[in-house]
Design a protein around this nucleic acid. Structure first.
Length: 763
DNA sequence: GTGCCTCGAGTTCA
DNA sequence: CTCGAGGCAC
């Protein structure tokens, strides 16, 4: 700048032009201002500066702290500096789930979306209005305001539980700290992103400081928001577009477009390209407009989001388990790249499924280097199914081919095309192995099945190892310090061949345990003895040394305390002990985790939960499975009658409990456990439906079936899939058919949805 | 038997 | 994230 700038008041200078001294002065001024403002606002309820001025001051202070880290003080009112870096982020539950969106890739799919909604709503030929806005390629954030104050910010996570990134979110300029005239509770949802310009600058700085540059703006934004030290986040140029909301104490508006306008009024950035569109043709036109300007936007977008404008209609349409019915993401075609397919490998999964994987000449697709891609199954590689029909997306793929790679959903690498012109003349159609490449057993394909499976069962090393990995996975036994990698190592060492072995590991490692006990003895002697010479003598003796020598004593000490495990690379005495401790703790396990951990085919997390809730205890479950016979008898009927269990799953369960090898494996495991916690008892034993068996049928209008089911279970009822003598109550919506009829025949009480809601006291 | 919808299983890379 | 398939309503 020019020499005059020195004469300007410090408060007016851009932060970049401040000398360290000026910065320090300015920092003190701003900190004092903010502190006074906070007191006036919170304690005296008499603000003397506007929210905008407050935010500007806070932003400036943050900028100074980011640029002059030496000035950062732990008591800074920005609350962003000096906070002790934490282990990770606290988990936060979302009061209103953050759902993901259904995708559309073609115009056709958008037209179908519109047609589906009009059919669902019974609108006939009437035109539905939608909002249409760019889909920002960043990461979703939910920001909670209470009485106008920003109190919490959370990432999406799995949609139900995210991570608490409040301190970091406070450093985003587009997020006001205070709102005026907002509902008492307001959760704003939107996308955190980084512009191309900021991204380039950040990466230049990363390179200059020797740090690794980020692959793309989205990764940079995600990495910046998930910094453990908020001061680092503060120095990153993150931005935010609001596009929706979660929990609200009062509605924002009657339509999506007005709600967005309201958010903009409150001080949030909303995307300027948002339009109201009448009917699907306008949606498609807007999509093309946005596609045309995509390159000039200055930030990444990966499509356009269409939402039903009328919020009352949104409510009527409701949501499926993971996606709202009233919105769709119309995605741009994914980026692709050509590369050479070097080789096709076969992997063997937990259930014995043989999956072909393409090993590729590494190639960059969408900023990420890809060297593997899934090829799904046998038919996919041949491009035709078993009956000779071409399959969707399938190609005749051969080793040596040039292939076009893309990342489905911007994540999973897949093969989109094969360049036949460049196919090597000697390329042969890939011959899918008929034997398991891991154990040599026959690999067969059941009729109607898409995958070929190894028949080696628990005797196939690949399957055994995959089953162990599944056993220790997050929703199964989840043993700290025993991840997929560790089990793999232990499996290869021969220490763990089946789940029960995990629990005898400590015992078998006991050579070391004894040594540790011996060392403790030595330590005790050291602490007890008064005479240093006596101590040395005692120590030498305990370590089997003739004379005391510090170096040799230490060597011996280490050597003695090393058990087989502790001798492993990356392990030590302490980590081994921690592992054994974590394993001990898991001798107590929730029933549903145990059932899931068994890795029975078709029995995933949801099914395991169902079974645990139904049978209540391990004994009840195991006895029923052992007593059941496929296709007949009361136990079989009971199993099938669980809502969500069909014949295929029931068969898989019963068969496992009747195969000698599998059964013995389960028994060996259970013998190692101390306590299997029964499924949670009814939360409300005094509710009117506690202990009753309820069946839902027909269309429920006020809630989804799964919501109704979850609610009934919370209140202590069992939800069954079909009506029998044991059914106490049938809740029938419009369109109920055979089930209501059968209930009437059996004299079971039938009520409608409203009566049901009244009954459970939630009208 | 057909058409949702959800779940299970397998997948990649940072 | 996606595909295939199980389960259920119609």
């Amino acid at each position: 700048m020019n020499g005059k700038s020195a004469g300007k008041k410090t408060a007016e200078l851009p932060v970049a032009e401040l000398s360290p001294k000026e910065a320090s002065r300015e920092q003190a001024r701003l900190a004092a201002l903010l502190r006074r403002a906070d007191i006036a606002y919170h304690q005296q309820d008499a603000p003397f500066i506007s929210d905008a001025e407050y935010d500007a001051a806070r932003r400036r202070l943050r900028e100074i702290e980011a640029r002059f880290p030496a000035l950062a003080r732990p008591d800074s009112p920005t609350g962003t500096v000096g906070a002790p870096p934490r282990e990770g982020f606290a988990r936060v539950g979302h009061a209103v789930a953050m759902l993901s969106l259904d995708n559309a890739f073609t115009d056709q799919e958008v037209l179908e979306f519109d047609a589906r909604l009009r059919r669902f709503l019974g609108l006939g030929e009437a035109v539905l209005s939608y909002t249409s806005e760019p889909k920002i390629d960043g990461l979703s954030l939910s920001v909670r305001y209470e009485n106008g104050h920003l109190v919490q910010a959370a990432t999406r996570g799995d949609g139900h539980t995210g991570e608490d990134v409040t301190a970091n979110a406070r450093t985003i300029d587009d997020l006001p700290e205070h709102l005026t005239g907002a509902p008492a509770v307001l959760e704003v949802r939107g996308e955190v992103y980084m512009t191309h310009a900021d991204f380039a600058e950040l990466n230049a700085a990363q390179r200059a400081s020797g740090d690794r540059p980020f692959a793309n703006p989205r990764n940079a934004a995600a990495g910046s928001l998930r910094q453990l030290d908020p001061a680092v986040s503060a120095s990153r140029p993150l931005k935010f577009f609001a596009y929706g909301w979660g929990q609200l104490s009062e509605p924002l508006a009657d339509t999506q477009i007005d709600a967005l306008a309201r958010l903009a009024e409150l001080g949030f950035a909303t995307n300027p390209l948002t339009r109201l569109c009448h009917g699907p043709e306008e949606l498609l036109r807007h999509y093309r407009e946005i596609e045309a300007t995509r390159a000039d936007l200055g930030y990444d977008i990966d499509g356009v989001v269409c939402k039903v404008n009328d919020l009352a209609l949104q409510r009527r349409l409701g949501s499926r388990s993971n996606t709202p019915r009233w919105a769709i993401a119309h995605k741009f075609p994914a980026e692709t790249a050509w590369t050479r397919l070097l080789r096709i490998d076969i992997q063997v999964g937990r259930t014995g499924a043989l999956s072909p994987v393409a090993r590729l000449k590494p190639v960059t697709v969408g900023g990420v280097v890809v060297s593997n891609a899934t090829l799904h199954n046998e038919d996919y590689i041949r491009g035709i199914d078993a009956s000779g029909n071409p399959i969707r997306g399938g190609r005749d793929i051969r080793e040596g081919d040039w292939v076009k790679v893309y990342r489905a959903g911007d994540v999973i690498p897949k093969i989109a095309d094969v360049d036949l012109a460049r196919r090597p003349p000697d390329a042969r159609p890939y011959e899918f192995p008929a034997r398991c490449p891991e154990c040599g057993s026959d690999a067969i394909r059941e009729p109607g099945d898409a995958v070929r499976r190894c028949t080696g069962g628990m005797y196939c090393p690949a399957q055994a190892m995959e089953r162990l990995r599944h056993f220790v996975s997050r929703n199964a036994f989840d043993i700290e310090g025993l991840g997929a990698k560790q089990v793999e190592t232990f499996y290869l060492l021969g220490w763990i061949r089946e789940p029960a072995d995990i629990f005898t590991l400590a015992e078998r490692d006991a050579g070391g345990e004894k040594a540790i006990a011996g060392l403790e003895d030595v330590l005790n002697r050291l602490r007890g003895g008064a005479d240093p010479n006596e101590q040395k003598k005692a120590l030498a003796e305990a370590l089997g040394l003739e004379h005391f020598d510090p170096e040799r004593a230490r060597e011996r000490f280490e050597e003695r305390s090393r058990t087989p495990l502790a001798r492993q690379h990356g392990w030590g005495v302490r980590s081994a002990r921690n592992l054994f401790h974590a394993i001990e703790e898991r001798r107590r396990i929730a029933l549903e985790r145990l059932i899931f951990a068994l890795g029975i085919r078709h029995v995933g997390e949801a099914a395991a939960k169902l079974l645990a809730r139904h049978y209540r205890s391990w004994d009840g479950f195991a006895r029923a499975m052992s007593a059941a016979r496929v296709g007949e008898g009361p136990e079989w009927e009971e199993l099938l009658n669980i809502d969500g269990v069909g014949e295929v799953m029931a068969r898989a369960l019963v068969i496992v409990f009747h195969q000698e090898g599998e059964r013995a494996l389960i028994e060996r495991l259970v013998a190692q456990l101390r306590e299997i916690e029964p499924a949670r008892e009814a939360a409300a034993p005094d509710s009117p439906i506690a202990g009753k068996t309820v069946v839902f049928t027909g269309t429920l209008e006020r809630m989804t079936r799964s919501e109704a089911k979850a609610q009934a279970e919370r209140l202590g009822a069992r939800v069954a899939g079909s009506v029998s003598k044991k059914t106490d109550l049938v809740v029938a919506g419009p369109g109920a058919g055979s089930k209501a009829k059968r209930a009437a025949e059996l004299g079971v009480e039938i009520i409608d949805e409203d009566t049901w809601l009244e009954l459970i006291g939630d009208a």
